[in-house]
């Protein structure tokens, strides 16, 4: 092989072929999937994300949650995701149309979060968990996100959104722990994660 041209054409051709196969065709096939309006309930599916949850999606990205938590439920033949109760059906392409970036993930150091808003719907639990995961989930290796909360002196009445912490985590008397806007947004995002609605291609029964 002494000719630069042969080499160049071959290198170009193999790569273009793979690009067409693995990028272009999938894009054409389902890169423009739209949301689905349920005939029974008139609901738009997947439900659009609230502004606050959208902001929480950004916090999720910045803090790198995706490195330990997946958001995809595989079908029965490929793993025990359904049997573990991580979802009521497998997740499909339409579930993710509003997500930029995607958080499908590749690692389960922690559990899958596709339906965390449904499995754990308490705002208080999520804040306690983020503040110190081991307080509600003993043995967890999740890092605390105390930097998303602020400790401040109570002036007058305690804040309405102050965390109800006890034991190890309780602030000194006269002080309170309140979530920052980032923490509130992150919890709103986590609560929005519920992919249990039925779709034509993914019925729940």
């Amino acid at each position: 092989m002494n000719r630069g041209l042969t080499l160049f054409v071959g290198i170009l051709a193999t790569f273009t072929l793979a690009w067409a196969g693995l990028v272009l065709i999938p894009y054409l096939q389902f890169g423009r999937v739209t949301d689905y309006v349920s005939e029974e309930t008139g609901q738009t599916l997947p439900p659009p994300m609230s502004g606050l949850a959208q902001r929480g999606h950004e916090v999720y990205a910045a803090e790198g949650c995706v490195y330990c938590h997946s958001q995809q439920v595989r079908g029965e033949s490929q793993g025990s995701d359904l049997a573990r109760g991580w979802g009521v059906r497998r997740t499909v392409a339409r579930d993710y149309i509003g997500e930029r970036p995607h958080f499908l993930g590749t690692m389960r150091t922690g559990p899958d979060l596709s339906n965390i808003g449904r499995r754990q719907s308490s705002v208080e639990w999520h804040h306690k968990h983020l503040y110190r995961p081991q307080s509600v989930s003993p043995g967890s290796v999740m890092p605390p996100f105390r930097f998303l909360y602020s400790l401040r002196k109570i002036v007058g009445e305690p804040s309405a959104d102050a965390l109800k912490l006890d034991g190890l985590d309780a602030p000194p008397p006269g002080w309170e722990v309140v979530p920052t806007p980032d923490a509130k947004a992150l919890v709103a995002y986590l609560l929005s994660l519920d992919r249990s609605y039925p779709l034509p291609e993914a019925p729940t029964e």
């Binding site: 690009w19 990028v23 999938p26 389902f30 890169g31 423009r32 392409a93 993710y96 970036p101 995607h102």
Partner: peptide, 22 residues
């Protein structure tokens, strides 16, 4: 190619994951 399809003009949903792992 990948930066333009994922970061500059991101494509939709799980097509991103395909391109990401490609």
């Amino acid at each position: 190619v990948v930066n333009s399809m994922l970061v500059f003009w991101p494509v939709q949903g799980s097509v991103q994951a395909i391109i990401n792992w490609w």
